[in-house]
């Protein structure tokens, strides 16, 4: 034992001096991580000039051609509208969302005549390009979802101007 010990000690010391061997950190870039390889040190790369993204054509078509309106599309529209548009436009579309109550410039109500008369494509266009102080939302709302939101805004507009006679079975339920 006495003779082995001096041999073992440097070995132990060498092991202790080793780097972390747990492989918790591996030699690859994390999503959105730092990347010294590139001049801007960011892992997220921009597509080179002149390239066309996979599915670009399909997205363009989806933007041009409105999908058929059904219950599923309206439901999808409600979900997206509630998540992305309500902070400013409010749940009913009167332009009184929470952020507006904290001082953000108030958007117009969807229930004014001008926007009631606007075609669905107009709402899709506002989402795609932004409008005045409203930013572009194209990076957060897929083309199909833009049509879904437009359809849901139509439903909101109907709901605020509806007459009792137009809603089936409603008249009987009212006192």
């Amino acid at each position: 034992m006495r003779r082995v010990l001096p041999l073992l000690l440097p070995l132990l010391a060498a092991l202790a001096a080793c780097e972390d061997q747990s492989m918790r950190v591996q030699n690859r870039y994390e999503v959105y991580g730092k990347a010294p390889l590139f001049p801007d040190h960011a892992e997220a790369r921009r597509p080179p000039e002149g390239t066309v993204a996979v599915g670009a054509l399909a997205r363009e078509t989806a933007l041009r051609e409105p999908p058929p309106v059904d219950a599923a599309l309206l439901e999808r529209g409600r979900q997206r509208y509630d998540a992305i548009c309500t902070p400013c436009h409010g749940y009913t579309g009167h332009g009184d969302g929470m952020v507006v109550q904290r001082g953000f410039p108030a958007p117009p109500s969807y229930h004014e005549d001008r926007l009631r008369a606007a075609p669905a494509a107009y709402f899709v266009d506002v989402i795609t390009r932004g409008y005045g102080v409203m930013y572009v939302y194209a990076n957060r709302v897929e083309p199909r979802d833009r049509w879904a939101i437009a359809a849901y805004i139509r439903a909101l507009q109907l709901s605020q101007g509806a007459r009792v006679a137009e809603a089936p079975d409603l008249a009987e339920k009212l006192p």
Partner: peptide
């Protein structure tokens, strides 16, 4: 406070690993 939905900021949470 403001009631902003997670998806307003964490946009890919339903579609991607990240």
């Amino acid at each position: 406070g403001l009631g902003i939905d997670c998806r307003y900021c964490h946009t890919s949470v339903e579609k991607a690993a990240f």
